[in-house]
């Protein structure tokens, strides 16, 4: 039955999918991006370029241009969206500087008949689609993992992201929920690492002298290697540090594993989520029924997949995956 069901779905997908090529061939999609100043965002833009170039060459869409604002300001991005409306794009894929401050511009775009798909940095305006990440679950999963590794519990150090950003609050909330569910863990210290190795290292080095023995470090990605360096510099035993898919984190993890059997887990969002949002926009333009809220799967690296992930991740980059049209259809189907 299940197999039959799958086949049916596939056939349905094909039947619906084939005319899609014709329907969106004239459509123009724009990427409105608020920030490009770190390796994650660079990988995100590269994924976009790689996937959309092929999509344009294959005649799926007419064009898919990427625009990035210089200053990571909501006002600047609102102006950029207004320009896109005037330029006559059919869809805008949006990584927003603010969840609320762009709502006015987004509404204008919707009123002009433009499909707006926000991802990563999502907007709350109801007319837009949201390809979002369950960051609360990400935080909860970190503690769940530590609970399997350290059944007797222990002290945790939490490295948070950039203060005032919603992602930071959501991951933090998940971690707190996790600690509530596993009361043998206790968060004894919390610092802001701003998702950057050097900032995290600096902050951890400053708080370590005042902390008792640490069993685990819960992180938000981009800060694990810096934390490891700070523990090493202070001459303290290395706790279980949750990693965030950066190449230097994975490399350090592999080195530790080879030296002393170190075990941990690494989770983050693939920068290629921009391409998932692209395909979602394409599906909407194609006339498919797409729910307004879609959830992106995490990209996790485990002890078993570490070597492969390390091989696939560019030196100094982030573990990435480019999504395909089928991935988008699957995510859409799961959200219905």
């Amino acid at each position: 039955m299940t197999r039959k069901g799958l086949l049916l779905t596939a056939a349905l997908g094909l039947a619906l999918g084939m005319p899609a090529l014709a329907d969106t061939a004239e459509k123009k999609i724009a990427l409105s991006n608020n920030y490009a100043g770190n390796s994650w965002r660079q990988a995100m833009l590269e994924s976009w370029a790689r996937v959309t170039e092929k999509a344009v060459a294959d005649g799926v869409v007419a064009s898919a241009d990427a625009f990035t604002t210089a200053e990571n300001q909501a006002t600047e991005q609102a102006a950029q969206i207004q320009n896109m409306i005037l330029q006559g794009y059919d869809a805008i894929v949006l990584n927003a500087a603010s969840p609320t401050a762009l709502n006015g511009a987004v509404k204008e775009a919707c009123d002009a008949g433009i499909t707006v798909v926000s991802f990563d940095g999502i907007v709350t305006e109801p007319c837009a689609w949201r390809v979002k990440v369950d960051f609360v679950k990400m935080g909860r999963d970190e503690v769940e993992y530590l609970a399997t590794r350290l059944p007797e519990g222990g002290n945790l150090l939490e490295i948070r992201g950039l203060a005032g950003v919603s992602v930071d609050d959501e991951i933090h909330q998940g971690i707190e929920e996790g600690v509530k569910a596993h009361p043998n863990f206790k968060i004894v210290g919390s610092v802001n690492g701003d998702w950057a190795q050097d900032v995290a290292q600096k902050a951890v080095a400053g708080i370590l002298p005042s902390l008792p023995e640490i069993a685990g470090v819960v992180t938000q990605g981009g800060d694990g290697y810096g934390a490891a360096q700070a523990f090493a510099a202070a001459g303290r035993p290395t706790p279980v540090i949750i990693m965030g898919n950066r190449q230097d984190e994975l490399k350090w993890w592999a080195e530790q594993r080879d030296a002393n059997g170190y075990e941990t887990v690494s989770t983050s969002i693939a920068p290629g989520v921009s391409t998932l949002a692209f395909w979602v926009a394409q599906q909407i333009l194609d006339g498919q029924e797409v729910p307004k809220d879609l959830t992106v799967p995490f990209l996790s690296v485990t002890q078993e997949t570490l070597d492969q992930a390390l091989k696939d991740t560019p030196e100094g980059g982030v573990t990435n995956v480019d999504y395909s049209q089928d991935d988008a259809k699957k995510v859409i189907a799961e959200s219905k």
Partner: peptide, 13 residues
Amino acid sequence: CFSGGAALNMGAE
């Protein structure tokens, strides 16, 4: 050299 490589946002603060 200290933090194991240059990052694009390393100077921000």
